[in-house]
């Protein structure tokens, strides 16, 4: 097993690579991609083609919805942060908006998504939402509404932090417009790392919420509409009976170790989906964490 380390150069290369993995966010990203590639290759040889195609489309849909959700969240929170800054002097309006945002903040994310999906279900029932692409965009919109507050808080925190420093009045007396100071100098030039860090974290949250809600609605949110009417995602795929049985096999193998090899051949669909979810969440967390440490955020 340790044969590869008989060569000193190989050993040093391996050591360097491992050290880099522990420290570098980009290497975690590469590790994530590599993990996905290895699983895909394995599935390509051992999983039947229809199931593989289903997993591929579910993974792509989950990734796409989560990315779109993050994009939409950025789209809402940036103007919202700037607007809130400018209406801060108008106390009644500002206080009303903050009051409303605090209420939204107190609604658990899963309830927000559930309410949003119930609306989508009604739209599907009334045949107002038919195409698969439109459903994906709508799902992303729903998720973005429940996660955008995290980014909004972060942006407002950055603006406030810079406002307290000398930098802000100095720029103002230099004749730079307030809007430019906030949008360009504070948010774009000096908070990019913070925003990216938040977006990575939100991407993880979006993946988690997406998988959870799709798993939950596998029983359906309507007697006419069920998860079958939504595009396949990792959550909905995991909720299928086959996948559940595959996951149950993991627990079975803990008590019967001789069963472990069969996990990677017989129970591939469920194991793959579960692995994709857990490994993605772990990788996103590690990327986020190492990125924050590297940038000293």
């Amino acid at each position: 097993m340790y044969g590869i380390f008989t060569n000193r150069t190989a050993m040093k290369t391996f050591e360097t690579a491992l050290n880099l993995i522990q420290k570098q966010d980009r290497l975690w990203l590469l590790g994530w991609m590599a993990g996905m590639a290895i699983v895909w290759t394995w599935d390509y040889f051992f999983l039947n083609a229809p199931a593989l195609r289903l997993i591929e489309s579910a993974f792509l849909n989950t990734g796409l919805v989560s990315l779109l959700a993050v994009f939409f969240a950025l789209l809402w929170s940036w103007p919202a942060a700037v607007t809130l800054h400018f209406i801060e002097s108008k106390r009644p309006v500002y206080m009303s908006v903050i009051f409303f945002l605090n209420i939204v903040r107190s609604v658990p994310q899963i309830l927000g998504v559930l309410i949003g999906y119930t609306v989508l279900t009604v739209l599907i029932e009334r045949e107002l939402l038919e195409s698969s692409d439109a459903k994906l965009w709508a799902m992303a919109l729903v998720i973005s509404f429940v996660v955008f507050l995290e980014l909004l808080d972060s942006l407002r925190e950055r603006i406030r932090w810079f406002q307290r420093s000398d930098f802000y009045p100095a720029m103002l007396v230099s004749g730079v417009s307030e809007s430019r100071i906030i949008q360009y100098d504070i948010l774009w030039k000096n908070s990019r790392s913070h925003i990216i860090n938040k977006l990575i974290a939100m991407f993880g949250t979006a993946v988690f919420l997406q998988c959870s809600i799709d798993f939950i609605i596998s029983v359906g949110l309507s007697t006419e509409v069920s998860s079958q009417n939504f595009p396949a995602t990792l959550g909905s795929l995991l909720a299928k009976m086959d996948s559940k049985k595959d996951i149950l096999a993991i627990g079975n193998s803990l008590f019967n170790p001789e069963y472990i090899p069969r996990l990677f051949t017989t129970h591939l669909q469920g194991i793959t989906v579960a692995f994709l979810i857990v490994f993605s969440l772990l990788s996103i967390y590690m990327i986020n964490r190492v990125f924050a440490l590297r940038k000293r955020l």
């Binding site: 959870s212 559940k244 996951i247 857990v278 969440l281 772990l282």
Partner: peptide, 17 residues
């Protein structure tokens, strides 16, 4: 790590249905 990052239903269905 696998348990901590797993959604609850993945862990739960590993043990019982």
């Amino acid at each position: 790590y696998a348990v901590l990052f797993s959604p609850a239903y993945v862990v739960a269905y590993s043990f019982k249905t």
